[in-house]
Structure formats: C-alpha cells, structure tokens
Design a protein around this nucleic acid. Structure first.
Lengths: 349, 349
DNA sequence: ATAATCACTTTAAACGATTAAAGCAAATAT
DNA sequence: ATATTTGCTTTAATCGTTTAAAGTGATTAT
C-alpha cells in the first residue's frame, strides 16, 4: 500500500495534526495556529497558511476533540437529565435544547432518570466524569442532596421545571401558582363551583404550587371548600380509580376535574371513557399541559400550556452564560398559556 | 486555606492521579494499577494497595475520562441518531438503548435528524469527531452516500429500522413485508375485500416493503386490484384530506383503511373524527405501530406492533460486538406482533 | 563472593492537541 | 561593524491518564 499517497492517506485511519504538518513540511504549531484562525495574529506567512489549509482539506483532517478537550479543559458538551423520555415535556425541551446547542457547537449527552433518585445521581456522576461543561437537570423528588453535592463542585448547572425553593440555584420554571390560579379562575368564571383537583401525592414544589394556585383561586373567589385528590405513584391506577369513583358518585354535585398534569389527565380521561361519562356534558375537564394523546379525544381539552421551546432555549443559554462568566443568578419564571378547547362547559347561574 | 487538608482537597476543584499518588507517597503508575484492578497482576504490595484505595476514596478521586479516552483510544461513548424524537418509535428504542448502554458502562450521545439529510450528515460528523466508539443510526431518505462515506471509516455502526438493501450493512429491522402481509391477511380473513393502503410517498425501503406485503396478500388471496394512496410529506395534510375524501366518497364500497405508520393513522383518525365517520362501523382501521394518542380514541386500534425494546437492545449489543471484534455481519429481522383491538369489524359473507 | 531471582516500585514515553517561549535568518538601526 | 528589530518558525511543556521497561534493594542460588 502507498501510505504516502494522498488518496490512501485520506481514506486511512485518522489523520492528525502531525500528519498534516509533515505533509506540508512545517511544525504542528504552525498548523494549529492556521487551523484555529490565528494565522494573522501569529504572523504566519500567507503562502504557508494556504498550503496548510489545502493540505488539511486534502487529507481530510478532523481535529481530535478528545485531545482538544483534554488540553483546553473544555469539552463543549453539556449533560441533560430529563425525568422520563416518555413525557411530552421531556421531548419538548430536549428538542429545544438540542437545536440550540447545535447552533452554538455544543453536543448534548443525555439521560433519563425515570423519576428514580439513584439513577439521577448516577447520571450526574457519569456526566461529571466525562467533564461536561455544564448540566441541565430536571431533578427528581428528594434529590436535594445530589444538588447540594453538585454545588460544591465547579460544574455549572441549571434546573428546569422543578425548583427547590429552599436552595439558591439557577432555574427556569413555570409560574405554576399563577398558571393554576388562572386555570381555576377560568373554571369558576364559567360557573363551576365544585371543582376537584387531581394531583400526585408529592413533595415536588412545582406540583404543590399547582395545588396552592387552585386553593387560592377558590378561596379568593368565595369557595371555602377544596377537593384535592392525591394519587400515589406506586398505586397509581388504583388511586385514580378511587378518586374518579368518588367524584362520579357525586356526579351531579361536582362540576369539573382539574388534572395537575397531562399524564394524570390521560389516565383520568381513559377511565371516564370506560365509565362512559361524557366530557363536558357529564363533567368538565381541565388539564395542565397536553399529551399527544388528547388529539384523538372527541373533545379538545382545555388546558394550561407550558412554553417548552422557550424553556429549553432559556435553559441552554443560561447555562452558557454560567459556563462563560461563572456568576449569574437567575430564577426565570415563565407564564403558561390558557388554551381553550371545549372540555369545560358554561354553567348558567 | 489548608490545601493539604483532606477535607478541603476533597471539596476542591478536581483531584487527579498525581494528587492521590502524592498523598500516599507513591508513583502514579502504582495508583493506576491498583485503581484499575491490576494490583495482583502487577504484584502490588497489599498494604500499599489498600492505602491507595482508601486515599482515592477519601480524596474523592474520579478518573478523568477525557484523558483516559485519549490514551486508550476508546471513549466508551456511542452516538445515536434518530429520525425524530417525537416519534414513539424513537423514544422507544432510545430508552432501550440507553438502559442497555448504562448496564455496560457506555454513554450515549444523541441527536435527532428530523428526517433531514443534512442534519443527519452533520450529526454523524460531530459524533465521529468526538471519537464515539460506534454509531446507531436510523438513516433518513437518500442518506446512502453518507452511509457509504461512513463505511470507509473505521467507525463501526448499525442501522436500525431502515435498510438500504443495495448495501451491505449491519442492520436490525422488522420483517416489514411479512408484518404487512399478515396484517392485510387478517383484514381479508375478517371479510374485508376493498382495503385502502395509506402510505408516505417515499423511497424508504422499509415503507415500500409494507406496500409489497399489502399487495402480495391481496393478490395471493384473490384480490387482483390494489388501492394505494400516497402521502407527500410536504403536502401532508392536504394529501391525507384528498385520500380520505376519495375513500369515503366510495364509503359503502371500501371496507378498511390500512395506515402504514402510526403518524399517518393519527392524522387519518383525526380526519375521520372530523368527518364523523365511526370506526369500525363506518370503516375498519388498521395501523402499523401505535401512537400514545390511540389511547383516548373511542375504539382500541388493531395494529401491528414492533418490538422496540428488543430492537434497541439488539442494536446496542450488535454494535458492541462490532466494536470488540470488528467483523460481524448481521441483518437481524424481527417479527411484529398483531395486536387485536376493535377497529376492524367482522364482515359476514 | 557473585549471580540470579524475587517482590516491588518508579521512570518516562505515549495519546493529540495548544501555546508560551525560544530560535533564527534577514532587514534595519546605531 | 555591531546591535536591534522584524517576520516567521520551531521547541517543548502541558492536559491526566496508561503501561512497557527499567530500577532497586533483599533474598536465594551457585
């Protein structure tokens, strides 16, 4: 084989700086300068520079990012941990983050914690070992210690969606209280009085905020009672069954169900289908976020919609600021949109 | 600050091999041997080994994977390119691949081509530059040249779902012809005679195979005509509208619609909802794969189901074989499951 | 008494880039 | 005639690992 032949070399294993340098007959330093746009600054002879550029192209030279990362102490990689890749929320922000990252020449390495504390911790460890430049995290329940551990590190990170209010972290989240308040108010405005709230039994702040928004709206608008049904993740379908049975048994007194997440709404709507309760005639339904699944439901579901694109974009760009300047302190609160479907009837007084 | 204090050092920036070595008072080589389980092989003094292990733990030493990768010429990272993260297919195999990868201590870097040829090429370039050990690809239409380029490289890869039959590649795919044949036969067996097939207008082999399966089933079972409607991705909703209008206008003569993908089925079912055609009373519906969206449709959709978990697992493990041994040649064909719902009525003859 | 073996441990060269600092002719200044 | 500057290029250290190869005392063999 003619290892020296241009063609063969280009097709051979990997071409490195040294190969290019030897081919042109200069040192690796010169090649590095030229290929990194420092030709003028370092006063490289124009003709030499050209020869280097041409040779690099001909040899199909691609810099070894690993070596570069080691030397520069920058990997141009960020880690993303979502709660569950099957959530629409996850694919939404993942998409946004990935496309934003690509624009800025960053690579995303990704993992799904599946709402599992240990897996969450493991993923962070793996990413930190890989020397990611930063992390975007959707933390799981009870991961405060993990986050605190991370804070002692010099790895910048931003939380998305879920906040720990007792900690100072950079965070992009929805104003869940307000979104929930607005939603509940919308139901009240349409004449609903007895509104059930179905939420997970959780300590996650963002979900508790949805309860608080619901409660505050009721109270401030003269409804002194509240009807909160809590679903345990471990006994999910059973709990939902119980909650809906309870709501339905008092069917003529309950006006609406407010589901605190799209996953809950999906479960709930399936059950309502089974029980042959019509929406909104039998009962009004309001959801937080929407699942793709809603598209085939006979009634468009009125819901509160999170700006996923924007969240992802903001998360990424905040992280980049952190990476570049080190000191930013941000708690960005976004507003939800109220998407009016036909799942909430108008009750005349 | 007491840089020498254990506690502070552990909380400081990054601890490296040298730090551990100095702390114990030995060379980095010894530390490396011990921490990589070569203590016995390299005849390291037991007591020394212990001291090294303890020091590493105390200092919270984590090996720098970048340096390791550079030296070992192995990144323990694989690249995954899916066609669109919003497809259920994508999240399905992504999940499987990721969990399999984690078991074997691999990290996945991931990207979505959004069915775009250029983005597909870009992603591969980025991943190859990052020196991934291998690639799992769901190729986009017309990406043959990209694949051929990749073959000239020493980067091992496996294709998933979509094959280019004219090329020799390692590939995990469904037996689409058979799945489609079986599905069509099922419809025929239930007394359907005039069955419309709705598919994308495409050159993608796996989708064409679905057409062929449909056609062969019809022909071999005495139905000499075929009714193929092709949807152009660019004029998607218009084309679907046209196709369905055409099918419906002859409603009493068409018995069933066979959608070649879940995305097409979703679009189609939405339109049928709008047009207030009932499934299966008005027309039978069969889908290839299912979308989460089907869960809220009033009728469980009968469909052909791909074993996503298995596909992902096989893809990953095949890739690992390739990475380790270099020469494997596999075209693994999986079989679909027929999931019987209630969307295909029984037509009595 | 000297050589060989043993049981450890260290040295130092990679991996492929970046980049201060030094080197070296030729041109210009003193 | 010598010193300085200019214009360009090379040298060599560095990032944090891995791992042949060499080193080193103590023990055993000849």
């Amino acid at each position: 084989m003619f290892y020296n032949s241009l063609l063969n070399l280009a097709e051979m294993k990997k071409v490195n700086l040294k190969d290019v340098a030897q081919h042109v007959g200069v040192s690796t330093a010169l090649v590095s300068y030229v290929l990194n746009g420092q030709a003028v600054e370092k006063q490289v002879n124009k003709e030499t520079a050209e020869r280097i550029v041409i040779a690099a192209k001909e040899l199909n030279y691609l810099p070894n990012q690993i070596a570069k990362s080691l030397k520069m102490r920058k990997t141009h990689t960020i880690g993303l941990v979502v709660a569950d890749i099957n959530y629409r929320f996850s694919t939404g922000i993942t998409r946004a983050i990935e496309s934003e990252a690509k624009k800025k020449n960053y690579t995303v390495i990704y993992g799904s914690s599946n709402e599992n504390e240990e897996k969450f911790a493991e993923l962070i460890d793996v990413f930190v070992n890989r020397r990611v430049d930063g992390l975007i995290l959707v933390p799981v329940e009870n991961s405060q210690d993990q986050i605190r551990k991370l804070q002692k590190t010099d790895v910048p990170f931003v939380l998305v969606d879920r906040i720990f209010p007792e900690m100072e972290t950079n965070c992009i989240a929805l104003d869940n209280h307000k979104a929930s308040y607005t939603s509940t108010s919308y139901l009240i405005a349409r004449g609903h009085k007895k509104i059930a709230m179905v939420n997970y039994k959780t300590t996650l702040f963002h979900l508790l905020e949805r309860n608080r928004g619901y409660r505050d709206a009721l109270n401030e608008q003269g409804i002194k009672e509240e009807w909160l049904y809590e679903i345990n993740t471990e006994s999910r379908s059973g709990d939902m069954e119980k909650a809906l049975s309870d709501i339905i048994s008092q069917q003529d007194s309950f006006d609406a169900i407010f589901f605190a997440t799209d996953t809950l709404a999906l479960d709930g709507l399936k059950l309502l289908n089974n029980k042959e309760i019509k929406v909104p005639e039998g009962i009004s339904v309001f959801s937080f976020d929407e699942s793709e699944a809603f598209e085939l439901f006979y009634t468009p579901i009125t819901h509160s919609k999170q700006p996923l694109e924007e969240m992802g974009k903001l998360a990424f760009n905040t992280l980049i600021e952190l990476i570049n300047q080190n000191k930013v302190n941000k708690l960005i609160c976004l507003q939800a949109d109220l998407i009016v479907g036909q799942s909430c009837r108008e009750i005349l007084v």
